[in-house]
């Protein structure tokens, strides 16, 4: 049942050209444009090329677009249309329906990540380090879980798809600018910006995933010690997991199945 519901959600996604564009195509376009605009050379003061920085960063952005934006907006839209209420009236277990939605956006996130990474590897010389790939995958799944939980939380707290759309955009876009997703490092940034971005999960997602594609970070990522030369993803995973668990708990408690305006 979970399998069929997941396939059904993926089919719905494939029928929505706007969603396909924003989740799969837009991160790819941003990757290509940024790499071409900035020039694919070493970023000053670092040991990574522009493409090596942007490929994993925008892959993460695609994953978040799928798990956070698309999940929240599509669920809120289905609720507005009364589809959630109808599902609630069938023998399908509600948890199966929600899990299927989350599995579907995780599959979509993997597709979005693969598209950007494969184009980066094939055309822009992005390097891959096999010993770090397991942690890259774990980071991706943890990030997907965390942002899917946050997406469901936004959907639970907003009562319409319009509000949901506004809230996800207003939260994701500013964060993406300060979380090493849209802007490559170009100068020392103020401490308060760093502190702010450290609180939210997006920077932890981009860091734990991106560092798996950095030659200057040693190790396979299974490390708690944070240092400039070490790939230590576990602290990032812990922050993402904490956000995800808290969001999932509140969402499960507050989620409504009825359209707005009904008692």
């Amino acid at each position: 049942m979970l399998f069929w519901q997941t396939l059904y959600q993926l089919r719905l996604f494939s029928r929505r050209p706007a969603a396909l564009f924003f989740v799969i195509i837009m991160p790819l376009i941003m990757f290509v444009v940024f790499t071409v605009l900035f020039g694919n050379e070493l970023i000053p003061g670092t040991e990574v090329t522009t493409a090596q920085f942007y490929a994993p960063a925008l892959a993460v952005f695609g994953a978040v677009q799928a798990c956070y934006t698309y999940l929240a907006v599509s669920t809120a839209t289905a609720r507005d249309q009364g589809v959630l209420k109808r599902i609630r009236g069938t023998p399908l277990a509600p948890i199966t329906y929600i899990l299927a939605r989350i599995l579907a956006v995780t599959a979509i996130a993997i597709a979005a990540v693969l598209v950007v990474m494969v184009v980066g590897i094939l055309f822009f010389g992005v390097a891959v380090f096999p010993e770090k790939l397991p942690m890259a995958a774990i980071s991706l799944f943890t990030g997907c879980f965390s942002f899917a939980a946050l997406g469901m939380l936004v959907c639970a707290l907003s009562r319409s798809s319009e509000t949901t759309q506004a809230v996800v955009s207003a939260t994701l876009l500013p964060l993406a600018f300060i979380s090493d997703v849209f802007i490559r490092p170009f100068r020392e940034i103020p401490q308060w910006v760093t502190t702010l971005s450290d609180i939210f999960p997006l920077k932890h997602f981009s860091t734990s995933f991106s560092h798996a594609f950095r030659a200057d970070k040693a190790g396979s990522g299974f490390n708690w010690i944070i240092g400039d030369e070490i790939y230590a993803a576990l602290p990032n995973l812990a922050v993402m997991a904490a956000w995800g668990i808290a969001a999932a708990a509140i969402a499960a408690y507050t989620f409504k199945w009825d359209p707005k305006g009904e008692i």
């Binding site: 069929w4 719905l12 029928r15 009364g82 589809v83 209420k85 009236g89």
Partner: peptide, 29 residues
């Protein structure tokens, strides 16, 4: 829920599916 059928007052259908697909999705429940 297996023994009752519900037709709600307001329309609640996924516009992007075909008629056949819509039936198939619900038949599985």
């Amino acid at each position: 829920r297996e023994r009752i059928g519900i037709v709600l007052q307001s329309t609640a259908l996924e516009p992007d599916l075909t008629v056949r697909e819509t039936i198939d999705v619900y038949a599985r429940f």
